[in-house]
Amino acid sequence: MQRVNMIMAESPGLITICLLGYLLSAECTVFLDHENANKILNRPKRYNSGKLEEFVQGNLERECMEEKCSFEEAREVFENTERTTEFWKQYVDGDQCESNPCLNGGSCKDDINSYECWCPFGFEGKNCELDVTCNIKNGRCEQFCKNSADNKVVCSCTEGYRLAENQKSCEPAVPFPCGRVSVSQTSKLTRAETVFPDVDYVNSTEAETILDNITQSTQSFNDFTRVVGGEDAKPGQFPWQVVLNGKVDAFCGGSIVNEKWIVTAAHCVETGVKITVVAGEHNIEETEHTEQKRNVIRIIPHHNYNAAINKYNHDIALLELDEPLVLNSYVTPICIADKEYTNIFLKFGSGYVSGWGRVFHKGRSALVLQYLRVPLVDRATCLRSTKFTIYNNMFCAGFHEGGRDSCQGDSGGPHVTEVEGTSFLTGIISWGEECAMKGKYGIYTKVSRYVNWIKEKTKLT
């Protein structure tokens, strides 16, 4: 034993070699072989497995989906700052455009905790909710729209109204504003409101030439003092309507412009014939205590009207009353817009006519005020429907199939267009061939041609 100890002390290297040989010859039971080890760690190889990531292109799944990435790591994937920024906006807080917040056709661009709407022409605001041009839906104005110097929408209202708090709607500024039905039992019968379409306001006024200088022999019209197929109006439903009495009662109609003036057809009036105007009328054979009678003290036909040349060209006249009318729910003026808007309103496509005229061709006159909704007829169809001249200051309205029309005794009465609950004068009943005849239409004086003249002559002093 002493000898062994001496050998170990003198030859430590020998001992180490012996131990190493023993270990190498022993069977290893701690580690699995290569094949079995792979069965336990069965993990798919990654895209760049075996390579240094710093030297390969980034992978979106590896960089940002398996674990949260930084902007720089995302930049490695896209290799483009702009594309990385677009991805980053949604990656950080989701897609803010998912709810489609942009209105009126706006395009949404996502941002971090926010979004941006790219608005089409005519709109602005956070969600493109603000109209900035009158060309689109009248700028959301209830009545009139004008573009300011910086191309912003400025709404306005006709006389007797003021802008509401929203700067879009119009509200009454006087007790009985024009064009409004205020009798409670008839307010439910107000005709369907007309909503502004998209309009090209630059070209809204037709490029028409008034044929002022045409000389033409007097034409022989049949029954051209021209509501057939209409309905009984309720008291106060058309408070701007008046009836004219002269040699015979209810020979023509008219509309209240203001307390002192009536507008009617020029062919209705004769110099030297006494005319009485009755406002607030409903049943011409009954006294309903809503009527107001006034005498006409002055007749002003349009300066281009000449019955000797043509009885229905420039067929418009103004009547001055001896005493002002007292405005109330049964006696209310009709609204008159400017030339541009009167023309736009007419193009809405349908209007209402009213009167006490004959209820059928050569038949009896109506006792109760009649009204009828009539569609506008395109000019080409209008011209083809008659052998008589249709001037540019006239328009056609009615039904091709016949059966409904204005008729004798309705002449001078109103053709009105309702705009968001307020009625505007767009025409004056003038003439036609018979009444409600198939293929024939009622012919009306186009008020847009005469609004400046009306307003100039009827100013209240």
Rank of each mutant, 00 (worst) to 15 (best):
V174Y: 04
N104I: 03
G421D: 12
G105K: 11
H415R: 01
F224T: 07
A149H: 09
H302L: 01
K126F: 10
L163T: 05
L130I: 06
D150K: 08
T386M: 14
H302I: 01
Y352G: 06
D110I: 03
D95Y: 10
D378A: 08
I336M: 08
S385P: 04
L14S: 02
L369E: 15
S25W: 10
N80P: 15
G351N: 13
S169E: 06
H302F: 06
T209A: 05
E35F: 05
F221S: 07
V374T: 10
T158F: 03
T389F: 09
L321M: 06
A308L: 09
G357Q: 14
D315G: 02
G106Q: 03
E35D: 08
V277S: 01
N328P: 00
A279Q: 01
E54F: 03
I309Y: 04
G106H: 03
C134Q: 02
D110N: 14
H415S: 01
V278P: 00
A233Y: 08
T190K: 10
L367W: 13
N138E: 11
T29F: 06
Y91W: 04
G355P: 04
E76C: 15
L130R: 13
C119A: 02
P235D: 04
Y450T: 01
G230L: 11
A307I: 09
G349P: 06
E53L: 04
E61K: 05
I40G: 15
A337V: 04
N36Y: 03
F78R: 15
C178A: 01
R294C: 00
V56Y: 08
N306E: 07
A366F: 13
T381W: 10
F123P: 07
Y22M: 15
T417H: 02
H415Q: 00
T186K: 05
G402D: 06
C28W: 00
V195H: 10
L163K: 03
E53H: 05
L460D: 15
C69N: 13
K459W: 05
V30Y: 15
P324N: 04
T264C: 06
V4S: 14
D223V: 06
T287A: 10
V277F: 00
A337Y: 01
R373Y: 11
E259L: 03
I15M: 14
P333N: 05
G229V: 05
Q185F: 10
R449F: 15
A173S: 13
P239L: 00
E231K: 07
K446T: 06
N80K: 14
T271R: 05
G105T: 11
V195T: 08
T85K: 07
F176K: 04
T417R: 02
I256L: 04
R294K: 02
C128W: 02
N36V: 08
D212M: 07
S156E: 09
R3K: 08
C382H: 02
L346Q: 05
F388S: 13
A9I: 05
V331E: 01
T218A: 05
K347C: 02
V257D: 00
P414M: 14
G13Y: 08
M8V: 09
V183R: 10
H289L: 04
D249F: 05
T389C: 15
T29L: 12
L372E: 12
V368C: 12
Q241V: 05
G351S: 11
W88H: 15
K438W: 14
N304D: 14
K347L: 10
V447S: 03
G357W: 10
T218W: 10
E79Y: 11
L32F: 06
Q96Y: 10
G349C: 03
N138Y: 06
S217P: 10
E401F: 11
E129F: 05
F31C: 15
V77I: 06
L325A: 01
V227Y: 05
G442C: 13
G402S: 11
I112P: 15
V353W: 03
P333Q: 03
C435V: 03
G351M: 02
R298F: 02
P12K: 10
S107E: 08
D110C: 10
P12N: 05
K247M: 11
W356K: 14
N5V: 11
M6F: 13
E285R: 11
R46F: 06
Q408M: 14
G246N: 12
T389K: 09
A337E: 01
C170M: 01
V92W: 07
C396R: 02
E142N: 03
G357V: 15
T458E: 01
V263F: 01
Q370G: 12
W261T: 01
H361S: 08
N295H: 09
Q2V: 14
A233V: 03
S187M: 09
C335Y: 00
S99Y: 10
T276P: 00
L372Q: 14
G412M: 15
S423C: 05
Y444W: 01
K387T: 14
Q216N: 06
L327Y: 03
Q219I: 07
